[in-house]
């Protein structure tokens, strides 16, 4: 019900070989450039973090799988720029109009970078939605895992945790709902909880019955037991 990015619990990926902690932050110069172009373009203010995540997730499964990490970023950025009207397809082809862009006043300047990165973008907002669950309460996640506002839309309930029983560990406050914010439907803040699930609730063959997975889940993803 979700998309190719939703890979928690998937079988078949095999072992991996962690890099040394002394390896460079960016393995290739273009990785650094891809990160920086993406961040700088974000400061034009034409999309939010949920829109940008959803754009990467909408890469076709074939592209998502074959692209390396920063290829996903840069390809997602090209899609974001065109879908949000910043660039045209002709611009990407190199045949677009020349001249100063209407958004040029918003360009992130070198001297503003430190302050812009330090400012961040908090997701906590005041909300009138009442807090329905208390710490320790047993809850069940919605099933199927899906955006209930937009079919096929962005959601942050992974498929491996759908229809699972857990208990409320912590209330994080009221946060912007990605399912709404990714689609121009407003921030719709609501209570966000850390919810603990026993491994045996998620996996057919858990490694150890005492292990748990904790997910941060919005109230509308949860039902009382």
């Amino acid at each position: 019900m979700t998309r190719v990015h939703d890979m928690g619990g998937r079988f078949g990926d095999g072992a991996f070989h962690p890099e040394s902690e002394d390896d460079p932050v960016f393995a290739e110069d273009w990785h650094a450039r891809a990160l920086a172009v993406t961040l700088a373009s974000g400061f034009l203010g034409q999309w939010n973090i949920d829109v940008s995540r959803h754009t990467r997730e909408r890469l076709s499964p074939k592209d998502y799988t074959r692209f390396s990490y920063y290829e996903k970023w840069i390809s997602g950025l090209a899609d974001l720029l065109v879908e949000n009207g910043v660039l045209t397809r002709d611009d990407l082809r190199g045949t677009g109009e020349e001249g100063r862009h209407p958004l040029a006043d918003r360009m992130l300047k070198a001297e503003s970078v430190a302050a812009a990165l330090a400012k961040g973008g908090p997701a906590e907002r005041p909300s009138n939605v009442p807090v329905n669950f208390e710490i320790g309460q047993e809850v069940c996640t919605a099933r199927p895992a899906a955006n209930r506002l937009v079919d096929g839309g962005h959601t942050r309930l992974p498929i491996y945790a759908t229809g699972a029983k857990g208990r409320i560990l912590k209330l994080h406050g009221t946060h912007v709902l990605p399912d709404s914010n990714a689609h121009g439907l407003g921030e719709a803040p609501e209570p966000l909880y850390a919810v603990a699930f026993p491994a045996s609730e998620l996996w057919a063959a858990p490694e150890n019955p005492k292990d748990e997975v904790v997910l941060d889940l919005w109230q509308s993803y949860l039902e009382p037991l």
Partner: peptide, 18 residues
């Protein structure tokens, strides 16, 4: 290159982010 030419990003800001 496209974004720089349109005045939407400043290559010096990219250097600063990196």
């Amino acid at each position: 290159t496209i974004l720089t030419r349109k005045g939407l990003i400043d290559p010096a800001a990219l250097d600063e982010i990196i």
